[in-house]
């Protein structure tokens, strides 16, 4: 139960960054934190005590493995997360070029 709560706390910290910070890069970092928290929660749900990684090393070995399905789901999610982060960062570069600041309040004032 405690590792699950750790993941939830990481998600809440990311939420804190997204909501209260006014710097755009800090907001992007907050999104990354939320993503890590969700990935980690998935991996923790699939963990089985005293089991091995889901790789068969010899044809007759015992099949005492951890749950492979959350791992397969998270594997794609990690790479997609990198792609979405890259889109976010390119938008940040463009916004900085146009307004010369990363403060969202300033950007709101300068709009128009």
């Amino acid at each position: 139960m405690i590792p699950f709560i750790g993941c939830i706390l990481l998600i809440v910290i990311g939420l804190y960054g997204i909501i209260t910070k006014r710097n755009l890069i800090k907001i992007a970092i907050g999104f990354c934190m939320v993503e890590y928290g969700v990935n980690l929660l998935f991996a923790f749900i699939g963990f089985k005590k005293d089991a091995l990684a889901p790789i068969i090393t010899s044809p007759n070995s015992p099949l005492n493995f951890v749950d492979p399905i959350p791992q397969a789901l998270v594997l794609t999610a990690i790479v997609i997360g990198l792609g979405t982060t890259a889109v976010m960062l390119s938008l940040i570069i463009r916004i900085y070029q146009k307004y010369k600041t990363l403060d969202i309040n300033e950007i709101r004032k300068l709009k128009g």
Partner: peptide
């Protein structure tokens, strides 16, 4: 938690994320 596939991908992707942020 016995997920070596995820660990490899996470390490490499993390390096790239930091490089992207630094850029």
């Amino acid at each position: 938690v016995q997920a070596p596939d995820l660990a490899i991908v996470q390490i490499v992707v993390e390096i790239l994320t930091v490089v992207f942020f630094a850029a």
